[in-house]
């Protein structure tokens, strides 16, 4: 007997999603088909077994790791959070970013230390936000009540917010968890003399033409390029292109009252 379509009905029945008509057809068939009756009872047994699904032990130190992250988040300090040895740090930002790339690329002389020192002097202010490059995405992913009510009090890795939540810099939209394994969300990388930055995961089409040829470009630690000394206009246009093409990782240039000169950071990979 070709029972394939009845298998689908049996499955949907487990989830209570049969129409009356489908239910009727299924019952008629089951009265005649012991195979399908058996399939039905076995599918039900599988469903039940999910309640007893074997746990996978969390890796050692898991709970400790959670508590450590919580403690780092709730302690009000200016020290940013280093999630990886390769120094991908996130910190609360105010309008002012402090210099790091300049020091880092000064090369060699305790570059790592200087990076940390520079990072430590970041102002605490608004949470780091990561705007999804796809604008117009709506619908909360997580209950809006998960927004920390006082985002400015402590550094946060990433606030998880529902769309439409008012943000201090006027940028709404869905926010994402930042800095999973290979993403390079970061904050506080500034460049000598520059304030604020736009961070992209690639140079959008058409952007190369907007950047003046004499713009200084430096390698960004971890892979990528920093364009220094851009005007607000240029940054704005590039930002718009990037938003259209879904290339924006972080937009720290908008609404901060940031002053020129500005930096554009384009990450690699």
């Amino acid at each position: 007997m070709a029972c394939g379509r009845y298998h689908e009905l049996l499955s949907a029945r487990l989830d209570g999603l049969l129409t009356a008509e489908e239910e009727r057809r299924l019952e008629e068939h089951l009265a005649l088909c012991p195979d399908c009756r058996a399939v039905g009872s076995r599918l039900a047994a599988i469903r039940t077994a999910f309640d007893d699904l074997e746990e996978v032990p969390a890796p050692e130190g898991f709970a400790q790791g959670v508590m450590d992250r919580i403690r780092r988040e709730t302690a009000p300090r200016a020290i940013p959070l280093f999630r990886r040895p390769q120094v991908r740090a996130l910190a609360g930002l105010a309008a002012c970013l402090v210099l790091a790339v300049g020091l880092y690329s000064a090369g060699g002389h305790g570059g790592q230390e200087r990076w940390e020192m520079a990072a430590r002097s970041f102002d605490q202010g608004a949470s780091t936000e990561v705007l999804d490059g796809v604008t117009g995405e709506d619908g909360p992913r997580v209950d809006a009540s998960l927004i920390d009510p006082t985002p400015a009090d402590a550094p946060q890795i990433a606030a998880y917010a529902a769309s439409g939540a008012a943000r201090t810099d006027g940028a709404g939209g869905t926010m994402e968890k930042a800095a999973p394994v290979e993403e390079r969300y970061f904050a506080g990388v500034g460049v000598s003399g520059a304030e604020a930055a736009l961070v992209l995961d690639r140079l959008p089409d058409g952007a190369a033409e907007l950047i003046p040829p004499e713009t200084a470009a430096q390698p960004y630690p971890g892979g990528g390029t920093v364009y220094l000394g851009l005007s607000a206009d240029v940054l704005d246009q590039v930002g718009r292109l990037a938003a259209e093409q879904g290339a924006v990782l972080q937009d720290l240039s908008a609404g901060n009252g940031a002053e020129e000169p500005l930096a554009l950071i384009v990450l690699e990979g």
């Binding site: 969390a58 890796p59 898991f62 790791g65 959670v66 992250r69 919580i70 988040e73 997580v142 209950d143 009540s145 998960l146 927004i147 920390d148 946060q156 890795i157 998880y160 968890k177 999973p180 394994v181």
Partner: peptide, 16 residues
């Protein structure tokens, strides 16, 4: 990644 995400979930739970 699973460990990272799972820890993150707990951190979010704490925050929320």
């Amino acid at each position: 990644e699973a460990a990272d995400l799972a820890q993150e979930a707990f951190v979010k739970a704490w925050q929320g």
